[in-house]
Amino acid sequence: MFEYTVRRLLIAVPTLVIISLVIFLVLSLAPNDPMAQVPLTVPPEVKEKMREALGLGQPLYVQFWKWLVQFFWIEPQVLIDYFFGTNYSEDKLRVISWQTRAPVMDTVMQRLPQTLWVVGMSYVVAIAISIPIGIYSAYKQYSIFDQTGTFITMVGYSIPPFFTGPLVIVIFAVYLEWFPSTYDTLHEVNNWESFIIQLKQMFLPVMVLAIQGTAQISRYMRSAILDNLNQDYVRTARAKGLSESIVILVHVLRNSMIPVITVIALNLPLIFGGAIITEQVFKVNGIGQQLILAIYANDLPTIQTLTFIFAFLIVFFNLVADVLYALLDPRIRYE
């Protein structure tokens, strides 16, 4: 098991380096000029010097190498300094945003908590709702509950968040006025009332993201349970005289969770992707919104760094999925 994890980690390193190279090359192909917004009165020689100051005069491989060093060597040092008060990273050049002239990672760290709260909470909600729904629709296959559930999940699956977002805003914020339409980042939770306000402002973005997650996971859960209900060991468990609740919730569920856990872990980074749009709709200033703003401003270091963070999340949760899979299923533990 340990060897398996270590081997997977070792494979992840070259994967990530290749991903970052691809992102870098694709971005450098894009026609853009960080000086495009500079007023026309600035002479071209000065613009050229400004470009060189940003490091753009260097060949591509030097730029890539510098980004690699900054991201994988200097930024971790900043993190260590932050936690332990050391000063390894002093005077070293970090990944700087062209837009804000501040280190990209500082902005990311400021914005990450909002994203984690909204995205994380929506996923927790989605899992909590979808698993019982999946189990029950499978157990009562083709019942009215199952049919209705299938219909609703189809709808939830097929309508994208950029549509459901404005829709719930119109219904719940404009007509019913139950919840605010935007997310106030500056809001501080320090007593019961402010906590209620926090819950209220989280409700709509969490709901929009959770609809899709619920639809997906409950479908997977349903089919996993159905696969297992026909297995011989279920008949054996019933022949032992176990009650239906033990048969389903212990014997069948544990086996059915094996594929579902994988799906949950693999879909987590996709939710971050979906959050880019949802954050935009509800004005949550998370990292998704940061990415959109950076794209508008041609801020290549920020785009590069954020895209890579998303890629990293995908690789990381793939690894998590594999390890969880091995933990849940004793059959593949020793391979």
């Binding site: 297995q231 060991y233 008949r235 054996t236 005289g241 176990l242 014997h251 544990r254 299923d329």
Partner: peptide, 28 residues
């Protein structure tokens, strides 16, 4: 009813199935 049957199954009537490879739950 099925409650009564649960008391009989495994307790008063035991059953062995054909396929030993799949008759046991793989994760316990």
């Amino acid at each position: 009813d099925q409650n009564k049957m649960r008391e009989i199954r495994g307790n008063q009537i035991g059953m062995v199935f054909q396929e030993p490879m799949t008759a046991l739950n793989p994760v316990f």
